[in-house]
Design a protein around this nucleic acid. Structure first.
Length: 583
RNA sequence: GUGCCCGUAGUUCAGCCCGGAUAGAACGUUGGCCUCCGGAGCCAAAGGUCACAGGUUCAAAUCCUGUCGGGCACGCCA
């Protein structure tokens, strides 16, 4: 509808140009907006005001000319000038009747767009290191990423969802070593656990499994383990040196056994994460392994590409990437003095790999604390000769948990963070998904557990779901009366009261909302829309009875609310919230 | 210190990309509505220097500059 109107205005615009009222070279984008006030009709256009300067005439005068040149359309009832020069469009009511038909015909496809039909996009999100369970910060990334993926899919993209598994590198070695040390403790060995080790209870669980399956296979005496190991921080040493030495000792003593401890750790935690996300309604097309990159020499290949392009140099034994050539504030290390590649190097390789897989667009979703990392990754894309605009990095702010007024302290360091699983268990999947998504992603989020759990109108999730369930209930009532309804026998012209008009208008707004949300990567717009739609429905419900005796009216109303139910379901589907028939 | 993000009713937030009509919701507060398809609902009222100061414009919450407040990031960590 919006597009239809746009075409009408473009036509009028051209006419005015031909008549010489406005200069030929005047370039203006025509915007149509939904009006806030029904008195202003359905759509408003400010084109006349935009042109006032070009034409050196009053906006109202130009508006008058534009309206005269506006082609007639069966959808438009009237166009009038209002305020400082707006052209308000009033749609013919038939235009809205076709909305119901479209919804009932297209069902779950209502709102789908063909906009980006041949575009493919790879969206990577969460990608938390498999060193422990997901926490509530990851939860927001998961909810946002999954919703964005759905959104882009109905905008017409071919969407590939991917989780990058950091299963190589030092952190993983620390994990394996932590498990081994806990295992030794279970064997009765006296252990001083390193400050830098992973201290969560889940490490004990994995160690217990290791002990159960392998007995004392990996056992060594305290003296052997700690011999010549530099002291840890509390003993006046350096915690990094200490833990690195322990890793080396672990590898040395376990030999081939090291890889099985390592694998047990990664696999256990990864499987836990996978299940956690699945129960959160988030599933991936691919779990992309960093180890795979290393094994396939992709990191080496990426570094060579940079070297050949002349963007690297050696200094103090390390290999550097000259990222400052590309608006990064300083150069970055790719290969450390000790020969180990940095996280950044494998990240470059990963992005190169993504680019080479041929996606039109790459979207990375990161926690906002990584924003300082953006320039160097963009720099690497440019250095590799790719168009940096193929990559979009969306930053997601962390969430702060509240229980009513009380702010919940959260410390990742001590391992006392609230996990995503705990959050789900407390408030449920639906509330969690909705609360995560209802704010702009780059906005800090206050997540109130009490509110999310409350089953009252305070809670927008229940408000929306209740609208859906109420409609289901009405349809059940109809069934109990041994009646049925058909769209064919519905007289949509009977839908004349203000509540029905409002509802029709909101329903018609859905495709535009989806399109806009997809364009700006903003699924929160869907949440807001659904709230509006549910509200329009509840108001209608309270004001009118649907199951009336007049058959054509009854069918019309049931067509309308069935359409509402469909759109609620579609919208909730995008943000990953269920649409229950019974609450 | 440098860079990025944020500052809109008592509270939590839309709106800012693309400047336009009286700045919208929700919660909370106050007062109403169940012989009625689910009251997990509805109606009404009160509540705003859009952080502040300049600038651009016929027109600024929206664009530009500065200031002040809050958050985050600034490793041969990941």
């Amino acid at each position: 509808m919006k597009q239809h109107l746009q075409t009408l205005f473009e036509h009028a615009f051209d006419q005015l140009k031909q008549q010489g009222i406005i200069p030929q070279d005047a370039q203006v984008t025509i915007y149509l907006e939904r009006t806030k006030d029904p008195k202003h009709g359905d759509f408003a256009c400010n084109l006349a005001m935009m042109l006032a300067k070009h034409a050196k005439r009053k906006p109202t005068e130009i508006a008058q000319q534009l309206i005269q040149c506006l082609p007639t359309s069966i959808h438009v009832a009237k166009a009038e000038i209002a305020g400082p020069g707006f052209i308000n469009i009033f749609l013919a009511s038939e235009a809205y009747h076709s909305v119901i038909e479209s919804i009932l015909r297209e069902k779950e496809n209502y709102g789908k767009s063909q906009m980006e039909q041949n575009q493919s996009v790879l969206i990577e999100f969460v990608s938390a290191n498999p060193t422990g369970p997901l926490h509530i910060g990851h939860g927001r990334g998961a909810a946002y990423g999954a919703a964005l993926a759905n959104l882009l899919q109905i905008a017409g993209y071919r969407v590939h969802k991917e989780y990058y598994v950091n299963d190589a590198g030092r952190q993983m070695d620390i994990l394996a070593t932590s498990i081994w040390l806990r295992y030794l403790d279970l064997c009765g060995v006296e252990i001083t656990f390193p400050v830098n080790g992973y201290k969560g209870d889940y490490i004990w669980d994995i160690a217990a499994t290791l002990h159960r399956d392998n007995g004392n296979t990996f056992f060594h005496e305290t003296e052997t383990i700690f011999q010549d190991i530099p002291s840890d921080e509390p003993q006046g040493g350096d915690k990094e040196t200490h833990v690195d030495a322990l890793i080396a000792r672990c590898k040395q003593l376990l030999g081939d056994g090291y890889s099985s401890v390592f694998a047990l750790g990664v696999n256990t935690i990864l499987e836990d994460i996978r299940q956690d996300l699945e129960q959160f309604g988030v599933v991936y097309d691919e779990w992309f392994s960093e180890q795979g990159l290393v094994e396939h020499q992709t990191v080496q290949y990426a570094i060579e590409q940079l070297q050949q392009a002349g963007y690297t140099y050696t200094q103090e034994g390390a290999l550097w990437f000259r990222s400052s050539d590309f608006e990064d504030e300083k150069d970055r290390v790719l290969v450390r003095e000790n020969g180990q590649i940095t996280y950044f190097a494998s990240d470059i390789a990963y992005h190169l790999n993504k680019l080479e897989r041929g996606f039109d667009k790459l979207i990375d979703i990161w926690g906002a604390d990584h924003h300082g990392y953006v320039p160097r990754v963009k720099a690497s894309i440019k250095a590799l000769g790719a168009d940096e605009n193929r990559l979009t990095i969306q930053l997601v702010q962390f969430a702060t948990l509240y229980r009513g007024k009380e702010k919940l302290a959260m410390s990742t360091r001590s391992g006392e963070f609230v996990t995503l699983r705990e959050l789900r268990q407390e408030v449920g999947k639906d509330a969690a998904r909705f609360f995560y998504i209802q704010r702009k992603s780059e906005q800090h989020l206050d997540f109130d557990l009490e509110l999310a759990k409350s089953q009252t109108s305070d809670n927008p999730v229940y408000y929306i779901q209740y609208a859906h369930a109420r409609i289901a209930s009405v349809l059940r009532q109809l069934e109990e009366k041994q009646q049925a309804w058909t769209f064919d026998n519905a007289d949509l012209k009977t839908l004349t009261n203000e509540h029905e008009q409002a509802l029709l208008k909101t329903l018609a707004r859905y495709p535009e909302t989806v399109e806009s949300a997809a364009q700006s990567y903003a699924p929160h717009q869907i949440a807001h829309y659904l709230r509006d739609l549910a509200q329009d429905f509840h108001v209608y419900y309270n004001a009118h009875t649907f199951l009336v005796d007049d058959e054509s009216l009854r069918n019309a109303r049931l067509s309308l609310i069935t359409a509402v139910q469909q759109v609620l379901r579609n919208g909730l589907g995008i943000i990953g919230v269920s649409a229950p028939d019974v609450m």
